[in-house]
């Protein structure tokens, strides 16, 4: 007995397009709840200790944060164009744009790595060696706990995205049939990539700018 996909001439192992889209949106919903809860925890701590959090926020490099935001926004633009190119069956163009988006993600991580390094050298990493000479040292440390958890989790998500986009970019370059066989693969990666961008769009002002420049 033939499945509905076989009767419609599709390959039987590929799920329906709308089901794949629905699946990725459900996944993004769970991710939104994860980051939403963490951001809410951070906001409550900030309301309780505004002076310490403002002081700690000034210790971050807002220029690096602004640069990273611009990098991620540009990568989102490249990703959106890649999805359009994929829809038109332009496999080489799609591949290049996916790899550019992934490279911008790597650039983001490099800038973030330099920031982490600088904070480590200033003894701002919240371990036993944490040092802050000003008042409310314990709450400044609390800010850095939240900062490293939020940005670290975001960086892990971005790393998955980079691997995903790189894999798709290479597959798309090697096999021009890739788009026909997996029409939704690049759409789904695009949705994930834009979601990671949105998370950063909220993290940047909350962590870097909320203390005022």
């Amino acid at each position: 007995m033939k499945t509905s996909a076989e009767r419609e001439g599709q390959e039987p192992d590929i799920p329906n397009d709308s089901n794949i889209n629905l699946g990725i949106w459900i996944f993004l919903l769970t991710e939104a709840m994860l980051f939403g809860a963490l951001i809410l925890c951070y906001s409550v701590m900030r309301i309780l200790h505004p002076a310490a959090f403002n002081t700690a926020s000034h210790l971050l490099d807002w220029k690096a944060g602004t640069l990273n935001t611009a990098i991620l926004l540009f990568s989102s633009f490249c990703m959106a164009v890649a999805v359009r190119a994929s829809g038109k069956g332009k496999s080489k163009g799609t591949s290049v744009l996916l790899l550019v988006s992934a490279s911008l993600g790597i650039l983001f991580l490099a800038v973030k790595g330099m920031e982490y390094h600088s904070e480590w050298l200033k003894y701002l990493f919240p371990n036993d060696e944490f040092t802050f000479a000003g008042p409310d040292s314990a709450f400044v440390k609390l800010f850095f706990n939240a900062y490293f958890i939020l940005t670290g989790l975001h960086a892990i998500h971005l790393t998955f995205g980079i691997l995903w986009l790189s894999g798709l970019g290479i597959a798309s370059w090697v096999s021009p049939q890739f788009h026909r066989r997996y029409p939704n693969a690049i759409d789904c990666a695009g949705l994930y990539w834009h979601f990671v961008d949105i998370v950063w769009v909220f993290l940047f002002p909350l962590l870097y700018l909320v203390g005022g420049s």
């Binding site: 709308s18 949106w25 989102s76 633009f77 769009v201 909350l206």
Partner: peptide, 30 residues
């Protein structure tokens, strides 16, 4: 800051994530 971030998120969801192109069930999840 949060108002501007929300506006940025709206632009990304509306235009880059092609939110309006999805079917009804998909649109429900955002």
């Amino acid at each position: 800051s949060l108002a501007i971030s929300s506006l940025k998120a709206y632009l990304i969801i509306r235009f880059y994530m092609n939110f309006r192109a999805g079917d009804r069930a998909t649109k429900l999840f955002p």
